[in-house]
Amino acid sequence: MEHYNMNLTLKVWRQKNNQSKGKFETYPVNNISSEMSFLEMIDVLNEKLIEEGNEPIAFDHDCREGICGMCSMFINGQAHGPWQQNTTCQLHMRAFKDGDTIVVEPWRSAAFPVVKDLVVDRSSFDRIIQAGGYISVNTGNAVDANAIPIDKKDADDAFMAAACIGCGACVATCKNGSAMLFVGAKVSQLALLPQGAPEKESRVLNMIAQMDKEGFGNCTNTYACEAECPKGISVSNIARLNAEYLKAGLTTEEK
């Protein structure tokens, strides 16, 4: 694709901190290369803001390779912007045309309070993982990878679920602010494997209990999460989460 430069208008959510009321600020950004990533474009704008003595726009980012799950941003009405199965850091400016106005907002969810500008606090996800998203094993020598036979399909499904990077796009997209795609993926990746099987009951019960405490909404199966997930996590993981929860919740003898 041919390289081109563009001038854009950016409408960005600015919010000093969690307590203050935020508002949109409009910034012109000029001479942006179509080969830049979206975050590089914000870098350019931030350098300009710093030079002018203004506060730069705060945003989350880390690997900039689409694998860490740090970047967020609701761009022009879609989580991670207009491209499918793509994170904000891998969204390139060729997705936009000269003269476009781009609206950038933070994830909006009661469970993801805004820290500053476009940065939200996603530690509610960490607390869900702490509630059961692990397996308990004694440390020691690594076990031979092929010592336990695993059905190919289960291994594949677990791997697909494990592709979740925990970015929160599912929550940001869902009209109910539900975290069930995230929790579904995290429950599935362990429930499908023999290593995760011994704790699968307590895991799903505890993770859902924590999810409910955090103030996420309830899934109504619109499947918007799957459509916007940068890793293409399937909603079949939500069905598996439901099945695991019903099985555990209806059969456990523990009070």
Binding site: W13, G77, R108, T173, N176, G177, G215, F216, A227
Partner: peptide
């Protein structure tokens, strides 16, 4: 579910990811 998003998006395009009747 309404309470789970206290601040609505200024610009949202739900039709890009889900059907109106499901929402």
């Amino acid at each position: 579910n309404k309470k789970a998003r206290p601040v609505e998006y200024y610009f949202n395009q739900p039709s890009k990811n889900s059907k109106w009747y499901s929402r």
